[in-house]
Design a protein around this nucleic acid. Structure first.
Lengths: 328, 328
DNA sequence: CTGAAAGCGCTAACAT
DNA sequence: ATGTTAGCGCTTTCAG
């Protein structure tokens, strides 16, 4: 920066201003300094800038599993929106259990991010307090809670489960079942599903729901095996809600192998509206979440906060959409 | 840090040493300082640390499209391996054309990363020079080139194409065709495929290969439409190489809709070994790349370099594997 | 509108 | 084995 200043015949301060608030510098000076920047081949050191200003223009995102397709849209929208504002994304992988979460969070915080985006609600109390205390804007997402750390954008997993239960009822399903990953949010969808089924008289009690639980993140093969297990114990089931589209796809394949007609003999509903869900055969009825909207909103909230503005509606329930296709 | 030093009754320097090179400090002091860190609730500011030491412990990764499943394994392995060494990943999305690439690179470089991982070979000469000049370790990947900027781990796309051509020949395919995305590397697979087909006498000339080109990143629907287009113009094709598994999946679906038997009437080969490739029906013959290995190696190279060590084998051809399943 | 001074929180290099 | 000194490259604050 000193070099640029020398070449342009101004002080380093003016160079900094040209870079960060060109509106406060006469246009002639701006273009003059810009030329010097070009000539010198100057690239600012934002590490230093961040240290001096307290704004790193770095945002941390924490996802349970990078390879999981569910959060991809959110990540993409987040990256793109942040990039448009000159921010950069740091990516952390937390896994599905809370154990290493705090450590990872400390690690990210130590980088001085201007915001932290979580693709979940923060469950562990120490982690919540840690985040609340350090004053960094936090966006929890892909879920709802009555006690957000800061900002929140998501939907009710219980409501998703209940809505799928209604769809099963509408289809005339008499013996509904469930295939689910063992992550907490899938369990909440299960709960909403089971309770609504009881309410609708399709199930005597939530504890009697035929269910196969598999480890998250679950590959498609788990769905095949899970349906096989279910059918062994409950040969008469005629509807199954799967906690991800991949599991549902596995169920579709297993059903075909066994000559079980979908949806006539077995209705199948997935979750996530995976890109291939529209083109499976039969096409998959599933629940769509607007992941891009979550990413875009999170980015905008954080940029806004970093700019010193207040954010008013800090909680957004974006709901979900049941996409009815051929499988149910 | 000054607070910790005061509480522990040592200098800030000693605190720094406990954090960064505990081996050089007596154990009693280490535990004493650690206790003070705990008590104060101290979280280091790595922005400042990076500025002072010239090592940010940040690594930048550039992918063409975050939502593309191809690089997911690489990203995941990269993140995990880096995290194990106390490094953090910054993610950038470059798109498939070179236009914004330089700008994005400058943006990432300005963050002072200890390394840059590209999931491609850098084509544009200005970008190459830019990177070569700034002295940051660079890993190009998912491709090979005679002139890497620095380190390189990948495979030959031409060889992939040629290998698939041989597989088509082995299956007795007489009228091979192609469905491909328009990104440069898919084009190189196309070239290897076409040239080998000519060599094997299955094609009079490379320019006569029936081919459908779609925009990358291509959704599955593109594969369906592409096969439909191909069949309209060349009803007699009996084998098709698709540049991604998603395109291949679309082709499988379109074939089934039309009552074309796969592989008997039409052999289908994909690329990428997508998680669902093993469970489509018929299961998909495809080319598998060890994406995790690329990510792990890239991370290790960069960590090694950042530690001041030399890297000897800076180019690795990891090859590929043709996974023969039912579709060809 | 521009510049000078001070310091962000840390580490390298040297001194003890 | 530990402390002291001097920055890393930038921005903030205040003075002109």
């Amino acid at each position: 920066m000193a070099d640029v200043a020398r070449v342009a015949g101004v002080s380093a301060q003016t160079v900094s201003r040209v870079l960060n608030s060109p509106a406060t510098v006469p246009e002639a000076t701006v273009s003059h300094v810009r030329a010097a920047i070009e000539q010198v081949g100057y690239v600012p050191n934002r590490l230093a800038g961040g240290l001096a200003s307290g704004r790193s223009r770095l945002v941390a995102a924490l996802v349970p599993a990078i390879a999981s397709p569910v959060f991809l849209e959110t990540l993409e929208a987040l990256t793109q929106t942040l990039a448009a504002h000159g921010y950069q994304l740091m990516l952390g992988e937390s896994g599905y259990d809370d154990a290493d979460e705090i450590e990872l969070l400390e690690n990210l915080i130590s980088r001085g991010p201007d915001g932290i985006v979580l693709t979940r609600v923060l469950a562990s109390e120490p982690a919540r307090q840690r985040l609340a205390r350090c004053g960094i804007p936090v966006v929890e997402s892909w879920d709802l809670t009555a006690t957000p750390v800061d900002m929140l954008i998501g939907f009710s997993h219980e409501a998703v489960g209940a809505r799928v239960a209604q769809a099963m009822r509408d289809r005339g399903v008499r013996r509904p079942a469930l295939i689910t990953g063992n992550d907490p949010r899938a369990q909440r969808r299960r709960q909403g599903y089971a309770e609504e089924l009881v309410r609708l008289g399709r199930l005597p009690s939530t504890s009697l729901l035929p269910a196969a639980v598999v480890d998250a993140p679950a590959p498609m093969g788990s769905g095949r095996r899970a349906l096989a297990d279910l059918l062994r114990q409950h040969p008469d089931i005629d509807g199954v809600f799967c906690s991800t589209d991949l599991l549902a796809l596995g169920a579709l394949i297993e059903a075909r192998e066994r000559g079980i007609a979908v949806p006539e003999q077995l209705a199948v509903v997935g979750f996530g509206d995976h890109p291939i869900a529209a083109d499976t055969s039969p096409s998959l009825t599933t629940v769509r979440i607007d992941g891009r909207r979550i990413g875009t909103q999170a980015a905008e909230w954080i940029v806004q906060r970093a700019a010193g503005q207040r954010v008013d509606d800090r909680v957004q329930d974006i709901g979900f959409e049941l996409i009815t296709r051929a499988s149910a």
